[in-house]
């Protein structure tokens, strides 16, 4: 057969594409459950790390089983809340914070009227995870999501039951610069958040990330990363935007706890 003919070329290309498509779909189907599991375990690991559990993982032989076991032991509740702080139907663990971030971004866009904001806020379903420590103290974990320099950044922040003091935090990123912006994923950066406070004299301030270093004893500020200014600013924005939407929940729960 003439290899230069149109018929041959078309048939060859078609056959090739069918073979390749079959191979790819089989691979994808065969590996999907494992990949899904990896993503799930990573999420659980991050949630646990934000309450200072699951540390020293490198020495554990069966990581995923260990994480599953810790998650079952400590995370006693996972729920969704709406913009007024009331509980909502739905699976908190499966909720992708990216979808919530898109709504939050729209709320904070320039030129949005209060009415439109209220409409957008009705769409929010914010996940909250509750951790019970061995001593019975409850810690509330909320996910945050935002933009760094090169792409998405996200994390989990856990609060004491005064809904003011940060108990722990962890951040991760898609592809910030190694050695600079990527430092947000290292303890040196996120351990700074422990003990910081979200409210200043009753006013919600979130956390400031201070370039050149926060003054010692600042209860609302942490040191920025030198060379990672845009990523640091991204973390600050992320905390401000996401935690603001959780504020009604914090305030409502605070009253509950006080009573």
């Amino acid at each position: 057969m003439n290899k230069n003919s149109n018929t041959y070329t078309f048939l060859y290309a078609t056959a090739l594409v069918v073979v390749v498509a079959t191979a790819l779909s089989l691979t994808s189907m065969g590996l999907k459950s494992r990949q899904q599991k990896n993503i799930e375990v990573e999420k659980k690991q991050n949630i646990l790390l934000s309450v200072n559990k699951a540390e020293g993982l490198d020495t554990v032989p069966n990581r995923s089983a260990y994480i599953e076991e810790l998650y079952r032991r400590y995370i006693v509740e996972a729920c969704l809340v709406d913009a007024d702080g009331n509980k909502k139907e739905g699976d908190a663990f499966a909720m992708n914070m990216k979808t919530q971030y898109d709504i939050i971004k729209a709320i904070n866009a320039a030129g949005v009227t209060e009415e439109e904001k209220a409409g957008l806020r009705r769409k929010l379903s914010l996940p909250v995870f509750v951790c019970r420590n061995d001593d019975g103290a409850l810690k509330y974990i909320v996910p945050v999501y935002g933009l760094g320099l090169w792409g998405a950044i996200w994390g989990y922040v856990s609060l004491d039951d005064d809904f003011n003091t940060i108990y722990g935090a962890i951040f991760d990123h898609k592809g910030e610069t190694p050695g600079l912006g990527a430092e947000i994923a290292f303890p040196k950066f996120f351990k700074q958040f422990e003990g910081k406070q979200l409210f200043e004299n009753g006013q919600f301030t979130a956390i400031r990330i201070v370039k050149g270093g926060a003054p010692a004893g600042d209860r609302h500020g942490v040191n920025a990363i030198s060379g990672g200014t845009i990523t640091s600013r991204g973390v600050e924005e992320m905390l401000k935007n996401c935690l603001t939407e959780y504020k009604p929940f914090f305030e409502q729960r605070k009253v509950d706890v006080a009573m």
Binding site: V20, L24, T27, L31, R34, Q35, N38
Partner: peptide, 15 residues
């Protein structure tokens, strides 16, 4: 095709 397969395998076994 090979690259996609390698990528998928890594995601499953060397996350």
């Amino acid at each position: 095709t090979l690259v996609i397969i390698v990528d998928q395998v890594l995601r499953a076994y060397a996350y």
